[in-house]
Every structure is written in C-alpha cells, then in structure tokens.
Amino acid sequence: MNQAEIAAQNGVNVEALLGAREALTAAPEAACFTWRVASEWKNGTHAESSVESFFGLGEEQKHVREYRYDTDHPEIFASADKGSTPVEFILVGLAGCLTAGIAAVASHRGIRLHSVTATVEADMDIQGILGIDGDVRNGFNSITVDYRVDADASEADIAALVAQSQKRSAVFDIITNPTDVHVRVNR
C-alpha cells in the first residue's frame, strides 16, 4: 500500500470491515449483537449510566474500559445540570454514528478526508413532556444535521458520502423508524 492509499484509509481498517461483512454473510447468527447500558439514579434528575460489556460474534465482549455518562437537566428546569440532557445524548449518538459512517464509506471509496464537522439541531415543543397539550408529541419535531466535509472529492461525491452514511446508519434508522420498546419493572 502506498502513502496515498494509506492516507485515504482515514484511520479506518477497510479490509477488516470488508472481511467482517464476508464472514457474517456466511455466518449470519454471529451478526446478532446485544448492546447494554447500566443506569443508576443519583439525585434529582441526575442519573449515571455506564457501558462496558456487550454481546456479539457469538460471545460476550468488552470495551477496552468502562465508560460513564451523566444525564441531567439544565438549571432552567430547576435541575442541578450534572450532565447533558438525555435528548442531547440522542443527538450525540446520531452525530457519532453518521460521522463514523462517513469515514468508513470515504475510506472504502478511496476518498481522503481532511476534516469532518457537524452541528446537530433538534426542535422540540416541551408542552408535550409537560402534559400541557396532548396534541404535541414528547419527542423532536425535526432534526437537522449540518455537515462540513473537507475531502479530496467532488461536491457530488461528498454528498453521496453523507447520503450513503445515512443509509447505513443504525442511529439514523432508530430515529426515523419505529422500534418496539419494552420497559419492565423487576423486583
């Protein structure tokens, strides 16, 4: 591999990704993953969540270390603001997923990235969560993601990168399509 090819990999191991795709086509059961978060109420609206283990490729897996996240609400909600709001975490997930997708697709297409930045904005009418107006939904009315991509590629190729990343994004799918959610109470 020459220097240009290495640079166009953008730090993504394309061969490993393609190899995984081939292996999982042959063994689809290994493609079934389970993701987990543990969460604990602290005080007020503050909760601390942690992520460490998950299941995939037919066995238990672990991140290289445990990650911890605080969620809370800002002071204007009379909260202590010990962390981001949970809805902002959704946007963090969306941005992280789309950006990872852009890098992976660019690398697969041999496009060298110089910088990729995004701002995500989501509009919400909080009359919904406060129960003021039953016609207003709790969640976002819309989400807008603005990307700036500096890469060795044409405008159309960059647009195609961003479009393909949405097509293959788990978080984009989770947000744009319904999901069966089962919240249980255990003793």
Partner: peptide, 22 residues
Amino acid sequence: RLAGVRDDTLMFSGALRNVCEL
C-alpha cells in the same frame, strides 16, 4: 417507507429526504 402499523395508525420512515437524495 411504511415502517410500522399500530392499530389504525400507519407509521412512515423519516428517511424520505435521504432516499430521494440517494
């Protein structure tokens, strides 16, 4: 895309813009 049905409610994907862009 028709993504879900709950009782009488049909739910459509919010990805329409992207499939048009693609």
